[in-house]
Amino acid sequence: MRRRTFLAAMLASAAPRPVWADVGSPAWLAAAALPDGSHRLHGLSAAGDILFALPLPARGHAATAHPERPEAVAFARRPGTFALVIDCRAGREVARLTPPDGRQFNGHGAYSADGSVLYTSEVVAESSEGRLGLWDATRSYARIGEWSTGGIGPHDVKRLPLSDDLIVANGGIQTDPTDRTKLNLDRMQPSLVRIAPDGRIIDHAGIADLPQNSIRHLAMLPDGRVAFALQWEGDPAETVPLLGLWTPGSAPILLPAPETEGYVMQGYAGSVAYSPALQALAITSPRGGALQVFGSDGRFIATHRRADVCGVAASPDGFLVTDGNGGLSTLSDRLIPAQAAPVAWDNHLIAL
């Protein structure tokens, strides 16, 4: 019996571990609502075809993928009460994360470089003070702690490439924990923070000139800069920049569009992505039905129109774009509808 147990253990250790290729090597993840009102997390191929559609208990928002094994975490729309860890090969729930008492998920998360820790964007429900939740991905996603994000209302969180440092977008908005009423628009302090692997905040930057410009979403550039997308909470008659670039250690730089183009976005950028192929940034506005492209040097390039557009991610030739009408479009020099699915794509398209 001892020999049999030993041999079984040896065989198990020698067996190849599942990887993303085992589920068709999806290029993107995206949540969507189906016509029957149910919700799914979808894996999309490089051609935009749906490889899998896994059930969610409610409306999803963003997702994050394990760096090695075919495992993804789908986050509820904020204020969220679930983060669902899914084995994409078996199509089953691995773990359902519930925030501790007094905490709410805020729609985003990221893994450590080795995949051992999941970080979740959270708030203290009563005050909207920012937290990063820490979950041990090697022990069934046991909760192992939390860190302060140094601000109010964190939303997106990304890991810096080739690092275990994290970048967090503190939106600056305090909300009612039940109905999301905005409580502090006259005293907002949005910020970007860099957090070391031990939880220390090692850099903190705000945008004092436009404190009502809420920092929401992030994209990492290969040179270490951080692109951030904003949502304007001030006078709707004003046109303000909705995209910025931050080099940690220096002040953020806001990238304005020409005034006539700025109005198109209606003060709202829903997603941001960087395309290595184009060396360009894209931000989307479902409110304005528009997508804008900027060079990585900050120059405005173009506005493209697409109803209810929001999801955007890098593709081999430029960007892939999703919208709430089920459309998938490609963008290089032009925005071209590629195919449609009978779903309503949600806010984000996550590149793997």
Rank of each mutant, 00 (worst) to 15 (best):
N106A: 07
N184C: 03
F82D: 09
G102L: 11
S121Q: 04
Q189F: 00
R77S: 02
R131F: 11
G80I: 10
I173C: 00
G150Q: 05
E126H: 09
A137Y: 06
E129I: 00
T149L: 08
E129W: 02
L183G: 02
T178R: 11
A169T: 05
T181S: 14
R96F: 01
L118G: 08
E146V: 01
G153A: 08
R180H: 05
D164L: 02
T138A: 10
D136G: 07
A90C: 02
D165H: 15
S148P: 11
D165I: 00
T81D: 15
S112Y: 01
A83P: 00
D179I: 01
G150P: 09
V123F: 01
D165W: 02
P100V: 07
W135K: 01
S121M: 06
V157H: 05
I144G: 07
T81S: 14
L97Y: 08
R89C: 13
E93P: 08
G172P: 04
G153V: 11
A196P: 12
A113Q: 13
R143Q: 11
E71A: 13
Q189G: 00
T175A: 12
Y119L: 14
I167R: 06
L166Q: 08
D198K: 05
Q189T: 14
P161R: 13
P79R: 14
H155S: 04
P197H: 04
I167E: 12
I195N: 04
H155Q: 09
R78V: 04
S127Y: 02
S191V: 01
G133H: 06
P154G: 06
E71R: 14
P177E: 13
P161S: 11
L132F: 12
H108R: 03
S140R: 13
I86C: 10
P79W: 00
G199P: 05
I86E: 06
Q189P: 00
R143H: 14
D114A: 10
R78G: 06
I144D: 04
R143L: 15
V85W: 01
R180L: 02
G153Y: 07
R103G: 03
W147R: 09
P190F: 03
P100T: 05
G150S: 03
R77V: 08
A196C: 02
V73T: 13
G151Y: 09
L185E: 10
S116G: 14
V168S: 12
V157A: 07
D179W: 02
S112V: 01
V124T: 15
S191K: 00
V157D: 08
R194Y: 10
L185T: 14
N170E: 05
L192V: 01
T181E: 15
P99R: 03
R92I: 15
D186H: 13
I195R: 03
